[in-house]
Structures are given as structure tokens and as C-alpha cells.
């Protein structure tokens, strides 16, 4: 989903308390496409947080949301080492982390 201003149509990510284009507060959510492309990525080899065992790959994903002036970005998490190319296709999945906690995630399209 992407935060969208009902007054002027501006799409903004991250979400903010007000529309950064018209300062309006009539903000809502619009569905984002479930496909995107890799904008950048890193393989994390040095573990910092025990919840994220290394190695793992973090994807930074571009999604073309209708009405947005530039691609809306989301993060993706892939266990292990992958070496995508910038521009590779990704798709949206939903992952259950815990009871009642589900997050959107992006994985490389096979």
C-alpha cells in the first residue's frame, strides 16, 4: 500500500502526518502493484541482531504506483546470499512473523 492524499492525489513514501505537496490531512491508502524491480541490495554477512541470522540479503525495491512522481520504495528480506542485478523483477508475498503479525515482503521472481 502507498499513502495517498485525497485532496491533491500526491503519493508519498514513507507515510507522513500530512501531505508534503498540499499540507492536507485527508490521507488514505491505495493498493500498490504486487510487482517491482530491484533498486539496490546488500548481502549482510556480519550479524547484528539475533532475529536476523547472517547471511541474508536485503532488497530495496522500486514499485511503480499510479499517481506517484517516482517509484515507491519498499524493503525485502531474503534469507541467505543472493546476488540479483539492479532491475531484476520481484514480487510481493506476505509472511506471518508471529500470531497476528504479518508483513509484506518482496522476493526475486523466478
Amino acid at each position: 500500500m502507498a499513502q495517498t492524499c485525497q485532496s491533491c492525489g500526491n503519493v508519498q513514501q514513507p507515510p507522513r502526518p500530512r501531505c508534503i505537496a498540499c499540507h492536507g490531512t485527508d490521507l488514505t491508502w491505495r493498493d500498490a502493484p504486487a510487482t517491482g524491480t530491484v533498486h539496490s541490495w546488500t548481502v549482510v554477512e556480519h550479524q547484528i541482531n539475533p532475529h536476523f541470522p547472517a547471511p541474508y540479503t536485503v532488497l530495496l525495491v522500486d514499485v511503480a504506483v499510479p499517481g506517484a512522481t517516482h517509484p515507491v520504495r519498499y524493503l525485502g528480506h531474503v534469507p541467505g546470499r543472493t546476488e540479483p542485478a539492479v532491475g531484476d523483477a520481484v514480487r510481493l508475498v506476505f509472511e506471518d512473523l508471529a500470531e497476528g503479525v504479518t508483513i509484506p515482503n518482496w522476493v526475486l521472481d523466478d
Binding site: P14, P17, S40, T42, N49, F52, V58, L75, V86, L97
Partner: peptide
């Protein structure tokens, strides 16, 4: 809602400045 917007990054394992700058470095490579 904090200034770091950690909720949009931490759940995917983006947890340190080094990982952040790695993303920038990859773009400069590209």
C-alpha cells in the same frame, strides 16, 4: 512515527548504518 522510521526498515533486517551505506555504494556501482 519516530524520526528514524525504523518500523519501515528493521523488520526486513535493515538495522545498521553500514547496511544503509552498502545500498548507496551499490547504486554508485550501478
Amino acid at each position: 512515527g519516530g524520526s528514524g522510521y525504523l518500523e519501515l526498515f528493521s523488520p526486513w533486517g535493515m538495522t545498521s548504518p553500514g547496511q544503509f551505506f552498502a545500498m548507496l555504494a551499490r547504486r554508485h556501482m550501478e
